[in-house]
Simulated assay, not measured.
Amino acid sequence: MAMETGTPGVDGLGEAVAALREWQDDGAPTQLHPGDLGWFWRSGAAATAAAVRTWRRRGRLLAVGLLDGPGLLRLTTAPDARRDAELARRLVEDLSEPARGVLPPGRAYVEAPADALVQELLRDAGWGTDEPWTPLRRDLGEPVADPGVRIEVIAPERAHVRAAVQRAAFDGSTFTDERWHAMAAGPAYADARCLVAHDGRGEAVAAVTVWSAGPGRPGLVEPMGVHREHRGHGHGTAICLAAAAALRELGASSALVCTPSSNVAGVAAYASAGFRRLPEVRDRRRDG
């Protein structure tokens, strides 16, 4: 049977999340995580379904992509399909031809695992590279140090607190408690937690969402932010430690995050919380 490209529909999103959970492995390069779909879910199930692309052969799901912004596809494959030539060729065809409905014409970006054959074929097809990102990983085999501040695990009735810190940490953020509830209704959030750090005066100063992929698999930190009025006091390190501890409690083998290399303060906060820097990665970029 020919390779099939499609969208899962709302009813098929659970299968995509389950596949992404299964594909996570500490020995694999940085890749699309079920938490990435989970965070996108703040826009609702219908919007998430519209942003997901799938590739199948003989009914088996081989690749999942998320349109995570204008012209950006974040893509990963089943571990045994990383070097699958037929899949890689089909991916390049779909990504390079706007009429196929995966990426729009003009400038476009593709994030894919560093060891995937599609990386090489996109390069050969004339795709360049974009700005560097820094992946970081913390092993969770040992207990995590106390963050030194009060950490609140956000319950539904406290969603407004989590949303307010998000807006105060990221310029232009449109996160609201309604969006938090939409996110929490998705299947990925069954293995997730939202945490807020409070300083000695009880002020909410930093927040993070962590996503487990199941026991023995790497978990994801996405996103983490410090309130703009409370920076420079170590709250970034504290909330990163809390994130690692929460993922360890959820059974994760490690904690992962990937941030622009230009985000010097963010990289430093993760590193100070025991996250180890990995080699930089770059999206593939087509200029038009």
Rank of each mutant, 00 (worst) to 15 (best):
A159H: 05
V257T: 14
E142G: 00
A85F: 04
R100P: 04
G225M: 10
A169Q: 03
V226P: 08
T48C: 12
L66I: 09
P113M: 01
T209K: 08
P156G: 03
Q119R: 15
L61T: 06
A213P: 11
G106S: 12
E22G: 07
A268Q: 15
L73D: 03
S261K: 06
P79S: 06
A188K: 03
T7F: 08
D115V: 02
L20T: 01
A252F: 03
A271Q: 15
A245D: 14
E152N: 00
A246C: 09
L37R: 00
L250T: 08
S173E: 12
R167K: 13
L122K: 00
E120G: 01
T7P: 03
R150S: 04
A206G: 11
A243E: 09
G148M: 01
G71I: 04
G288N: 09
L241G: 01
P104M: 02
V264R: 15
D115H: 03
A108G: 02
F170D: 04
D139N: 05
P34F: 13
A81E: 05
W41D: 15
R100C: 08
M1H: 07
G44R: 08
P135T: 07
L37C: 03
G266N: 10
A204V: 11
R282F: 08
L256P: 03
A163K: 11
R21Y: 05
L13C: 12
G219K: 08
L32V: 07
P215V: 11
L278A: 10
T54Q: 14
E203R: 15
M1T: 12
E15M: 05
A268Y: 09
A88C: 01
A273Q: 01
L62I: 02
G148F: 01
R123W: 02
G172N: 12
V210F: 08
D171P: 07
G225L: 10
Q31F: 02
R162N: 09
A19S: 15
G126C: 09
E93G: 13
H181S: 13
F275M: 11
A116S: 10
P147Y: 01
D26E: 14
A206I: 13
A108V: 11
G44L: 12
A50L: 09
P218V: 07
R21K: 14
V281S: 06
A116D: 15
V196N: 07
G14S: 12
A242I: 07
H181A: 14
R284Q: 11
N263D: 15
L241Q: 04
V210A: 08
G186A: 11
R21G: 13
D84I: 05
D139Q: 02
R201K: 12
A184M: 12
R138V: 02
L13K: 11
A190K: 10
P147H: 02
P218K: 09
L220G: 04
